[in-house]
């Protein structure tokens, strides 16, 4: 099986290049791309990429696979056309090969205050939530921050310092809709500028690539309705 993998070591390479690999894949085996890449790393130990859980839970191995962002560890080789072209997530600075600098992505995440804020008296035991209130967090809390969505979003490419991006906005909505959070109005006020939310043009690249099957566009729509309700 043929592979074409993006290589770049800023210390020694003047510019990035694609390296061709060939791998014997035993008949009938359906390994994941990550397994194949670990075998390629045996061929060339300098090949660098991140991974940890190897089961789609940690969000470390987001990369561009045949032009579409995804997690290598849950992408079966059988689902890919050869040669398999692997590149780093687009739009972020490359540290080395497939390892990108995620600072910008995390900064946006930090901006939306990804934690519960409550100003009322703490209850004696715990803050209760009805099953219905809890159900509202489904489809939001599952995000693993793999950045596949934000780095496939043109609005995030152009303004990564100003547009929160699909992942951050999905998380923003997760806290806006949480019945235990009392900071809803301040959170909305923070988002009501020309960039943070409104740079979303509804292209839905984010929905297309999310390996967890989440829908950031829908969450962004909900935030927009909340802003509308608050401002009109």
């Amino acid at each position: 099986m043929k592979f074409s993998i993006y290589r770049y070591n800023p210390e020694t390479d003047k510019k990035p290049y694609m390296q061709e690999f060939d791998l014997e894949v035993p008949e009938g085996s359906d390994m994941m791309l990550l397994d194949a890449m670990l075998l390629l790393k045996d061929q060339d130990a300098t090949l660098s990429f991140r991974r940890s859980c190897r089961e789609g839970v940690c969000g470390s191995d987001g990369m561009s696979i045949n032009g579409k962002n995804g997690l290598a560890c849950i992408t079966p080789l059988s689902s890919l056309k050869t040669p398999i072209v692997v590149r780093p997530l687009p739009g972020l600075p490359v540290v080395r090969d497939l390892v990108v600098d995620m600072t910008q992505f995390y900064k946006q995440y930090e901006k939306i205050k990804p934690y519960l804020i409550t100003n009322d008296e703490p209850p004696a035991k715990e803050r209760l939530q009805s099953p219905e209130e809890r159900a509202k967090l489904d489809g939001l809390y599952e995000c693993i921050l793999c950045a596949c969505c934000s780095t496939s979003c043109p609005s995030f490419w152009w303004n990564p310092d100003k547009f929160v991006g699909p992942s951050g906005l999905l998380q923003a909505y997760r806290f806006l809709i949480d019945s235990r959070d009392t900071e809803t109005d301040e959170r909305l006020a923070d988002l009501d500028d020309a960039y943070s939310v409104f740079r979303c043009r509804g292209i839905m690249n984010c929905v297309d690539v999310c390996p967890k099957g989440l829908n950031p566009t829908q969450a962004i729509g909900h935030i927009r309705s909340m802003l509308l309700k608050r401002g009109v």
Binding site: D192, D193, A194, Y195, S196, V197, F198, L227, L228
Partner: peptide, 18 residues
């Protein structure tokens, strides 16, 4: 909150509605 000066509206929502 991202501050903007040359945009028409005061907020993102403002621009969006206009």
């Amino acid at each position: 909150m991202v501050a903007t000066v040359t945009s028409l509206g005061r907020s993102g929502l403002h621009d969006w509605i206009i």
